[in-house]
Nucleic acid binder design. Sequence first.
DNA 1: TTGCTCCTCACGTCACGTGAGGTGGC
DNA 2: TTGCTCCTCACGTCACGTGAGGTGGC
Lengths: 278, 278
Amino acid sequence: MEMNITKTKTFRNRDSLMSIKQFSEICGLEQSTLRYWDDIGLFRPAYRNAENSYRYYAPEQVVQVNFIKVLSNLNIPLKVIANVGEKRTPETILKLMEQQESRLDTELNRLHEAYSTIHTLRNTIQQGINAPDADHISVQALGALPIAFGSENKNQEGQNFHQAFMQYSRHAKEIRTGLSKPIGGWFESMQRFVENPSLPSRFFSVDPRGGDQRAPGKYLVGYTQGYYGYQGDTPLRMAEYAREHRIVPRGPVYVIYLLDEISVKDPSNYLAQICAAI
Amino acid sequence: MEMNITKTKTFRNRDSLMSIKQFSEICGLEQSTLRYWDDIGLFRPAYRNAENSYRYYAPEQVVQVNFIKVLSNLNIPLKVIANVGEKRTPETILKLMEQQESRLDTELNRLHEAYSTIHTLRNTIQQGINAPDADHISVQALGALPIAFGSENKNQEGQNFHQAFMQYSRHAKEIRTGLSKPIGGWFESMQRFVENPSLPSRFFSVDPRGGDQRAPGKYLVGYTQGYYGYQGDTPLRMAEYAREHRIVPRGPVYVIYLLDEISVKDPSNYLAQICAAI
DNA sequence: TTGCTCCTCACGTCACGTGAGGTGGC
DNA sequence: TTGCTCCTCACGTCACGTGAGGTGGC
């Protein structure tokens, strides 16, 4: 009994009620948001003046608002929040929290994913900007580059770059590796590259999830400017350079697009780096 | 010249164009999304049939779509994406990527924040569920609990729980600690708690950001059921228990609400844990 | 009377999703 | 003719934000 009196005394304390303006300032919410939440039945003011229909809020409602903010920050639809709020018990809220903890994990992974994507992209574009002229050929020591291979492009009659690339697109989607990562083409040897430079034996993405890598070591490095599959005379010039300098390219060739439709409008300005293992 | 021929040959290859259905499947986008992106000028098909206005997409557009997906995943408005896309250069894209890397950092912090909030909440509610009956009093060894103190509640005439709590709300907002974390009241001594249990000397939140803590050690622990500020006879019973067991509570008293409006509908079922340092 | 706060519609916004109603090629 | 794909409106959705037009207390 005494408890009820105390409860009533503190719970219906009109002195401590706040106008919508005061309350919105304390909560850091727009008045329009509070009215909207009232409209959809998510969160109602503690008291409503019957004559002028002014809304009045109680101090402890601040806590509830903060909880709603946390939940909606987790992208839970307001309808769902309203639903759990109406029939809340310690058990249901606990269950909701457990669900959200695992949802948050997924979300955090997604963001780390995005982080790695833009980080790789930064590096790639930076390399593209710093790249020497297209006719510059040199020997360089390169570090390991994590990549994810697509399946082999069957070198059948009439298969062109585009058809092969579409295949790769499908494949990349299946194995959930990135078409959002820089893309390249792989040739098993320099000879193969010179013979048919516009159709790689395999595509790959610069993506650590693939588990493959371009081995660290010495490479003969050249650049081409132009649309996908177009290599101009760079393959020949690289082969010639190798002969002149008595270098024997023994390993595979990697063509990586540093600048493509992501950062360049005119396709004839795309820039690829060609690395032949020696 | 030769380059132009090659370029034209590969770029305007009608054979490799895809219908909107094929393209949407490869990209993992709804057709309606592609139409919408076309409408707002964000992303247009490579070719449009003039007679029936069918949309046709080129293979390399998959890469562009993936880039747009990455950017919109970062909550960049489509208008902004369209804008940078139209006048993209390696330099502008690089700049955008740098900006996004720092935005992502902020976002990741926000999520870690939410993570810690729901984690603490889970623990608290779980304790509330596991709590013994309200009349159970015992001595327990408790670990350290990270908390964030509010400022002192001036114990002036007529100041009640609600007024003090509103003060704390404002304060908590300023120092950006959590009203979304479990809240409690602090009393400097058991005597002070027994004298006026409904108005704590300070409020606090269970939040590591405060830098304060409830020291680890032995505590006299009791529970109250009821609305904020209502402690019933628990203070007296705890004092009595101490006398009977020849325990001298020398330290401060912490009242933590394990179950409040977040997880319980009826305010008379709120549950607080009372810990008096001994 | 002037300012301030509050109210209730109504409409706009963003990024689509969902039909409705119609066309076109096999 | 039947199925399938494509098209263009138009309207709905979600969580508000933004006036417009009006009230009420000092």
